[in-house]
């Protein structure tokens, strides 16, 4: 980071050979690495890859792989704005999810309302809001504010230019999709996020920490994972 502020001579330097040797001393079991990869594939929803990987590594995915497919198609449905079909699928997958998550259910219905408004189906939007959303607001006053904001969309001719534009943005679908995805993972006792990205973050942090004390071959390209040569001191 800031080798200029400190005389380089105070830092210990590791040559590429030394570093390789040190790395070789650390034993990481193949099994653990495989588990990390499987964890990533399962949570991120790569069903085919997980299947292949399971065959090649002999590692059990620990979950019914077909549920990954379901989860992905549910996510895709929301991203495509087809909330109704997402709800049907999640109910087929696990009927308890929406019955035990009132907030998630509200957000899905809210997203449906947004989709109606986006496509200019104003009459449907109003009827839907009355039938589906108003009772939710009555049950849980905490939903009222969000509901009011969503309804306010109807007041704008050009929703994308309104202060509430974020609601009609694609990012809102993403947000809803992630919330549902997390709920499904929780119901299946899976982590919400794969472990691999946080390990990478930890790697960056650790390298930065070490930077202040030593010169060593670093990984700067996380795609290839290559060790860059030690910068020559002086």
């Amino acid at each position: 980071m800031t080798s200029s502020t400190q005389p380089a001579s105070t830092k210990k330097t590791f040559s590429a050979e030394e570093w390789d040797k040190k790395l070789a001393e650390v034993s990481v079991s193949k099994q653990d690495l495989n588990k990390l990869v499987m964890n990533y594939l399962v949570i991120e929803g790569y069903k085919d890859a997980a299947e292949k990987f399971s065959q090649e590594s002999g590692l059990q995915p620990g979950i019914d792989l077909s549920s990954i497919q379901d989860r992905m198609s549910i996510r895709n449905a929301i991203q495509a704005g087809d909330i109704e079909s997402a709800i049907e699928r999640v109910n087929d997958l696990d009927p308890e999810i929406l019955d035990t998550n009132p907030k998630l259910y509200f957000h899905l219905q809210q997203q449906r309302l947004i989709e109606f408004i986006k496509t200019g189906k104003i009459a449907e939007a109003i009827e839907f809001a009355q039938e589906e959303l108003a009772p939710r607001g009555e049950e849980n006053p905490e939903f009222l504010e969000e509901l009011e904001k969503t309804m306010a969309l109807l007041a704008f001719e050009e929703t994308t230019a309104s202060p509430l534009a974020y609601l009609v943005d694609y990012a809102q679908r993403q947000k809803t999709a992630s919330e549902l995805n997390s709920a499904i993972l929780t119901a299946q006792c899976q982590e919400k996020d794969p472990k691999l990205p946080s390990l990478l973050k930890m790697l960056v942090w650790a390298q930065n920490q070490l930077d202040e004390k030593a010169l060593f071959p670093k990984i700067n390209n996380f795609v290839t994972g290559e060790l860059d040569p030690v910068p020559t001191s002086g």
Binding site: E88, N91, P95, E139
Partner: peptide, 13 residues
Amino acid sequence: VRFIKNNVIGNRT
């Protein structure tokens, strides 16, 4: 039945 199912899940009213 499926129609009813998808209407009642999560919906008290």
